[in-house]
Design a binder for these strands. Structure first.
Ligand SMILES: [Zn+2]
Ligand SMILES: [Zn+2]
Ligand SMILES: [Zn+2]
Ligand SMILES: [Zn+2]
Lengths: 141, 141
DNA sequence: CATGGACCCTGGAGCCACTACAGAGTCAAC
DNA sequence: GTTGACTCTGTAGTGGCTCCAGGGTCCATG
C-alpha cells in the first residue's frame, strides 16, 4: 500500500515537528532527502513519516541527536543484539536522575529564599543571600 | 582597606569562574571593565570580586544572565523596594518546579523502557517503544 | 641583562538543537 | 489568470559559554 506522497507541511502536521526542524534534520543527515516535485517541493513517503516519528519520540524522551542517530542505526539491523540500546537508556536515565537531583537542591534553596515580603533592598533576604552566600536565612548585608 | 589589584587568573581562582567566562561577562557588560596594566593585563579590585561572586551564585541558582543583570541593578539601589527580586525568585521557582515535573515524567518513561535484557533488535522493547509509541510495555513490532 | 615559563591578550569559530527571517518560486482552487 | 496558501534556499540568531591560534607580558632566576 503505497500512499500518495505528501509535502513537508503534511509531514509536519502528522508528526508535530516544525517544518524548519524537518529541513534541519535533513541537512544534518538524520532524515533522508526525499524525492522532489517538478517545482522542487519535497515529496515524503510513509517511511519518512515512520522515521521522523521515531526521531520525535526520541527527542521527547530527551535523547541527543547523536543518540538518536545511533538508535536509528540499530533499529535498521533487526538481527543485531540490542545491548547498545539498553546501555543508552541506562546512561540517559542516569543523566535524567542526576538532573532531577540537582534541580531539587536548587528548588529547596529557592524556597528558602522566597520569603521576603516587601522590604527594602538593603534588608532584602534575596539580594542578601546572593551577596553573601551560604545562608539564605541570614540578616541583611 | 584597598588590597592589591589582581589579574584575571586570581579572580578566576577566587570565584571558580573560568577565565574565558570572565572575559565574556565583560564583553556583554555584566562585569565592568577593570583598569589595565601597562602591558594590557586586566587589574581587578575587590568590588569586581564581590560582583562576580554575586553573578556566580545567581548562575548556580539557575538564573539567566538577564535576570542577574536585573538583580544586580536592584542590588545597587539599597533604598528601593525589593518586590522585583521577590517576583523573580517566584517565577524562577515555578520554572524549576515545572522542569522537575517534566523530568520526573521522563524518568518514569525511561524506567519502564529499561528492562530489555539482551534480546535481538527485532524483539527489543526499547527500539519497539520508539517505533510505536504509547506503550513501553508492549510486545515487539 | 638575558632567558624561561607562567601568565595574559585579541578576535574569531564552535557547541547544541533549533528558530526566524528575507526574498523568491510553486501549486491548486476558483 | 489570479489569488493565496504553501514551499524553496541561504543566512543569521539564540544562550552561555568554551576553545583555539598567534601573539605579547611579567617576574623570578642564572
Ligand atoms: Zn542523554
Ligand atoms: Zn526582599
Ligand atoms: Zn529562571
Ligand atoms: Zn532490547
Amino acid at each position: 500500500m503505497t500512499l500518495q506522497p505528501f509535502n513537508i507541511g503534511g509531514l509536519s502536521r502528522q508528526t508535530g515537528v516544525n517544518i524548519e526542524t524537518i529541513r534541519y534534520y535533513e541537512k544534518i543527515g538524520l532524515l533522508p532527502p526525499p524525492a522532489r516535485s517538478q517545482g522542487g517541493f519535497r515529496q515524503y513517503e510513509d517511511h519518512h513519516l515512520q522515521r521522523l516519528r521515531f526521531i520525535r519520540r526520541g527527542r521527547d524522551l530527551g535523547f541527543s541527536i547523536d543518540s538518536i542517530r545511533a538508535l536509528l542505526t540499530l533499529a535498521e539491523r533487526p538481527d543485531s543484539p540490542c545491548e547498545g540500546a539498553d546501555q543508552m537508556v541506562l546512561l540517559h536515565l542516569d543523566e535524567v536522575e542526576r538532573k532531577i537531583a540537582d534541580l531539587t537542591l536548587l528548588r529547596d534553596e529557592l524556597r528558602k529564599m522566597k520569603n521576603c515580603c516587601g522590604q527594602v533592598v538593603a534588608q532584602c533576604q534575596i539580594i542578601g543571600s546572593l551577596t553573601a552566600p551560604g545562608s539564605a536565612q541570614q540578616d541583611a548585608i
